[in-house]
């Protein structure tokens, strides 16, 4: 499992948090090596050098490992574990400074879409639930001007929740063109989830890029399909 993909390790003081986060991220990243390293060796609250070291080795499939941590001493344990790895493995392991849950989910999704370690780190670091990030410059809606846009109704009962949102972002990432969803970056999972799109909402998918038409059509059809949900 995890062939060709970056692995992700969740280091928490609590085994339940680390394992729960694997369950959560697994929904959106079914084929990534997601490995929990929570709690002490004795099962208490704390972090374990042995567990973190073993988790890194388990998560690695040769394409790098992103390690996300909760509180300060988890970071110290993870960085110490890195020091003890052999040079070859250490060169492709990174402790990522990001919010554990939000960043962890974003990292897992980016790994699922085939992103490299830089992309995984970048998505984790930028994933925070705050003001919705604006679409990148140059991805202005294509109203009347160059570009392409389609509006479809969201049919699934629970709206664009985590699983379909991840599916949407995965598909968006397969296209080079910049695409927006109601003005937000179609490649940002948390940005899209923060739109709070519910059943019946009109979703406008647009691209100002001349090559964006295929991407807009594919994404519009995915939304119109209801993501396989009723």
């Amino acid at each position: 499992m995890g062939d060709g993909k970056v692995g992700v390790v969740f280091v928490s003081h609590s085994a339940l948090i680390a394992e729960g986060l694997v369950d959560l991220a697994r929904q959106m990243a079914p084929t990534v090596n997601l490995v929990p390293a929570g709690g002490t060796d004795a099962g208490g609250i704390g972090t374990s050098f042995e567990k973190v070291s073993a988790a890194i080795s388990e998560a690695d499939a040769g394409h790098g490992v992103a390690v996300l941590c909760d509180l300060g001493s988890a970071i110290l344990t993870a960085e110490t574990a890195l020091d003890f790895l052999d040079d070859v493995l250490r060169a492709r392991v990174r402790v990522v400074d990001a919010a554990l849950v939000e960043g962890g989910v974003a990292a897992a999704v980016t790994a699922e879409t085939g992103g490299d370690l830089d992309a995984v780190e970048s998505s984790a670091r930028s994933a925070v639930f705050g003001p919705v990030s604006e679409a990148p410059a140059g991805a202005a809606p294509a109203a009347g001007g160059a570009g392409f846009s389609r509006t479809v109704a969201l049919t699934n009962k629970d709206g664009l929740h985590a699983r379909p949102a991840a599916e949407f972002v995965k598909l968006a990432n397969t296209f080079a063109a910049r695409v927006t969803v109601n003005g937000k970056d179609a490649k940002s999972l948390l940005g899209i989830m923060a739109l709070g799109l519910v059943q019946g909402t009109d979703v406008t998918i647009a691209s100002a890029d001349p090559e964006g038409e295929d991407a807009v059509n594919a994404l519009a059809e995915l939304v119109a399909s209801g993501f396989g949900e009723s």
Binding site: D41, T47, F49, G72, E79, T80, F84
Partner: peptide
Amino acid sequence: ISTVGGAAGPLFGT
């Protein structure tokens, strides 16, 4: 490093 779970393990260990 291998037996102290808190920050003290990595810090004193290092």
